[in-house]
Amino acid sequence: MPNDYIHIILADDDEDDRLFFTDAFDELKMNTKVNTFNDGVELMDYLNSEDAILPNVLFLDLNMPLKNGIECLNEIKANSKMSDIAIAIYSTSASEEDIEETFVLGANIYIKKPSSFKQLKKVLAEVVSMNWQYHTNSLNKDNFLMRL
């Protein structure tokens, strides 16, 4: 297989959440490489740069300063170069309608940030694993919808 590791990016303005996120992957030992960005602008700047390594899964916090998650999602979906990235919305809370709306806009995964670290690890493992299944078993990515 072309990549040894699974490349993961998180864009979240909350320092604690970024910490929980990287800690969780560290403990998971899933052969992943995690990059984090502090807001949407930083994220998009990176993705649009020449030497960017596009992630397998991109975790997007919805509520971020400067550029929020929905704006990032729209930009990524409009860009054919990035359309292969699996998008996971990573948010504190949302109504059913908001969840459905982000799915309709093209998100693949909606994660309500769990309230325990154990749960967080479980959720992230599930996301990576499922994404791996889609990646390695040539499943129809258009049908990739998951809510955790």
């Binding site: 459905e100 799915f103 919808l145 998951m146 809510r147 955790l148």
Partner: peptide, 10 residues
């Protein structure tokens, strides 16, 4: 994490 009908609708 979603129901079949929600999937269909989305």
């Amino acid at each position: 994490g979603i129901t079949p009908s929600a999937f269909q609708r989305i």
